[in-house]
Nucleic acid binder design. Structure first.
Lengths: 336, 336
DNA sequence: CTGAAAGCGCTAACAG
DNA sequence: CTGTTAGCGCTTTCAG
């Protein structure tokens, strides 16, 4: 059986309270006592049981993180950022994934609340009008959304709509007029909606006609063949000269599928992504994209929580700067 | 303040023991009582405090996971596999990253032990002769290594050495004779060592001369320019016709850097990776690689732990099947 | 089938 | 500076 604070106390000839002090407030303990305790600690190989402390203090030092998936580097990087910041601050990270499924969001949240995490960082499918999220807000559990942009909840993200608009505007500036938009299921991701809205903004601002969103399932391993066929087969005068994609994963699937069907990128079609995955740089041509600082989003979300614990009020939205990454996948259209 | 089991008991007119039973062993409770308790539970919005239970039962239901980084999809996917399997089994996942630094490995481990996780899944720089790992084995804490292959510790991984040998043999079968090996720092990763050994095996088996490993730092964002220059500049008769890389990330960095220097892949140089990252498929040419089932490795590691909890003995090594993924980055040499 | 009571390991008043 | 004491929320004998 593992040694407890009691064993240490006995071994050092002091009370458990003194051991606790030696551990948590050494300045309240006489140096000689401190040393006696420390000696006992490492003869017994004592490791304080955090569960005992957590029960007593009602603080766990654990941050709950709920993300759609770790298979997308966007979220993996975010978690990396959270973990590093958490380690620096002395927090631990409990992670759950949801695959964009509402039921798993609910389930994960419940588990984390039972575990009495000190705070939550979460990325949900839809922030606004989300019942669970409303419940979290009612409770006094500090939380921050990552990636979701919401008026109702504190969040750290980028200006999705604006960034998308800038990206599309850059395509228009190059001479593109027929620009299509490929997105995740609009009902399953508020970011998909915001980015598509940005696309529409830019089109409208240029007096161009926004095309309806081409929606595909996030969880699908590839784009539907009929869709690719359609995009590839359209004759040159009719087909879009550029494709704005709601995220890099979609962009890569599109580029891969279309190039495989003989479409030249960017010759026949320019492709613009959104996320700024490092892998985009390895593609040929490299993927032009809107870059968001995923690791920093995670780190800032954690810092935001930390400030809440320190008594700060619940900040609203923290909008981090995005970038427009040039890439070979975008060029001026040949047949404008 | 949150409702506790005591509040529920009072509200339902029963003892706390009965509430506990209603929660954990409903079959021991009279249906009428059960319902009374359930009613109280949801009027009070009661959520059992796991910390209390954990202290009492000395089981947390938490699995500690220690990985080098989540920025590499190999580990992110593994964590994804762990998390899914854990959720299915009712465990929670506490994650820490180390960036291949010994001190952070030590630190993470310590934190997880204090948190009294039920078991550990870890990927360390070097498994054999690892002092911490030895300490973990002494303790009665169940643990499994993921990716590390070790005689001393239970682990789930692929046959790194064999897989590397097969990959290199496939290059040799195509006619390659001058094959170079690009690896992570051999002192910082036992897998790098094992894969390089596999390379040497295959070279020796074919009567070819194994080149010394070209070691580069895992954490570096790009390959050193001098290295790339050297590989690109060597004249055609002298330079290797194929490059075996210890992981896909290195392979991508090499391919990117070399193509940028005018080297044709696979015309001038074939490139073989190791990991089987999904992104390799998006490259042009697609990356030939040894694929390992990262998600499954994670899931199996968790299942192995779960079996240990059920009283199973501490299995040795579980070696999962690897694959050899064809890719456009490998072809027969033009100047054998 | 249910209740009383003890205690998991720790911290935090409160005295001294 | 240190010890005594109570109790965080829960489970689990042991009686009844």
């Amino acid at each position: 059986m593992k040694a407890s604070i009691k064993d240490v106390a006995r071994h050092a000839g002091v009370s458990t309270a003194t051991v606790s002090r030696a551990l948590n407030s050494p300045h309240l303990v006489r140096p000689a006592t401190q040393q006696a305790v420390e000696r006992a600690i490492d003869t017994l190989q004592f490791r304080p049981n955090l569960v005992g402390r957590q029960l007593r203090t009602t603080r766990t030092g654990i941050i709950g993180v709920v993300l759609p998936t770790l298979s997308n580097p966007v979220f993996a990087d975010c978690l990396q950022g959270i973990e590093e910041a958490a380690a620096r601050r002395g927090y631990r990270v409990l992670v759950a994934t949801t695959h964009y499924e509402l039921e798993r969001e609910r389930q994960s949240l419940d588990t984390l609340l039972r575990q009495r995490v000190d705070g939550l960082i979460l990325t949900v499918a839809n922030a606004d009008g989300n019942a669970m999220l409303a419940r979290v807000r009612q409770s006094d559990m500090p939380y921050v959304l990552a990636y979701n942009h919401s008026q109702e909840h504190p969040c750290v993200t980028v200006a999705n709509r604006l960034a998308a608009a800038e990206a599309v505007a850059s395509l228009i500036a190059l001479g593109h007029q027929r620009i299509a938009a490929l997105t995740g299921l609009l009902g399953r991701s508020d970011r998909a909606v915001q980015r598509y809205a940005g696309y529409c903004d830019a089109m409208a601002a240029a007096g161009l006609e926004a095309a309806p969103a081409i929606e595909v399932d996030f969880n699908a391993p590839a784009l539907p063949a009929p869709l690719l066929d359609r995009l590839a087969a359209a004759d040159a005068l009719d087909r879009p000269t550029a494709l704005f994609c709601g995220n890099d994963h979609l962009a890569m699937l599109a580029m891969h599928g279309l190039v495989g069907r003989g479409v030249r990128v960017p010759g026949d079609l320019s492709i613009m992504g959104f996320d700024g995955l490092a892998f985009g740089q390895f593609l040929t041509p490299t993927l032009a994209t809107v870059s968001q600082p995923s690791t920093t989003i995670g780190a800032c979300a954690l810092e935001a929580l930390h400030e809440r614990f320190g008594g700060m009020p619940a900040g609203r939205a923290l909008i981090l700067p995005h970038g427009l990454r040039q890439g070979g996948s975008v060029a001026a259209p040949v047949h404008p």
